[in-house]
């Protein structure tokens, strides 16, 4: 099937098999492997993207469901060659280790700050509870979100 969608502001078109997830299409059809494939069953958040400004696990969305819609991935957060403040904060605070969860966390944290400019610690924990990280124990991820919120 043919799908047309907007990804990071650019129109894209791809030939996909009906069973393919949006995650697969982004990674394997559109050359955007930033969204990650840690569980592919909606448990880890590593594939988080914005679909029409809503945070979703792209592994749980069929590529054909995204036909005609607007998608923002981790590759679309930086603007004019400048990192998004959440990206900059993750790099600065040591919130990145292996980094496999990082794209999902960055997208989810950017979405949190979009809706809540000054989240409490509990709000940060709850908002990011759908994203698993196996390396950091989360402490420096919380530091990063607090730092980004303060800017």
């Amino acid at each position: 099937m043919n799908v047309r969608l907007t990804v990071n502001g650019e129109p894209h078109e791809a030939e996909v098999w009906e069973g393919e997830s949006l995650l697969f299409a982004l990674r394997e059809r559109l050359g955007l492997p930033g969204s990650k494939n840690a569980c592919e069953q909606g448990e880890c958040g590593s594939c988080s993207v914005l679909l029409d400004d809503r945070l979703v696990c792209s592994c749980l969305v069929l590529a054909v469901q995204a036909d005609g819609h607007d998608v923002v991935t981790v590759e679309g957060l930086a603007e004019d060659g400048r990192l998004h403040r959440v990206q900059e904060a993750f790099a600065a605070t040591g919130a990145v280790q292996c980094g496999f969860c990082t794209p999902g966390f960055v997208v989810a944290a950017a979405d949190l700050l979009e809706h809540n400019a000054d989240p409490s610690d509990d709000e940060i924990r709850e908002a990011l509870s759908g994203n698993l990280c196996r390396c950091t124990g989360y402490a420096k991820i919380f530091d990063a979100v607090r730092l980004a919120a303060s800017q």
């Binding site: 969204s35 957060l77 993750f90 990082t102």
Partner: peptide, 23 residues
């Protein structure tokens, strides 16, 4: 010194190539 990770920026932008990204 607490120098920034050399791979921090490619990892936050999604450009860092993991084994599952190989093509």
């Amino acid at each position: 010194e607490s120098a920034r990770r050399t791979d921090a920026v490619p990892k936050v932008t999604g450009e860092f190539a993991y084994s599952s990204d190989a093509y």
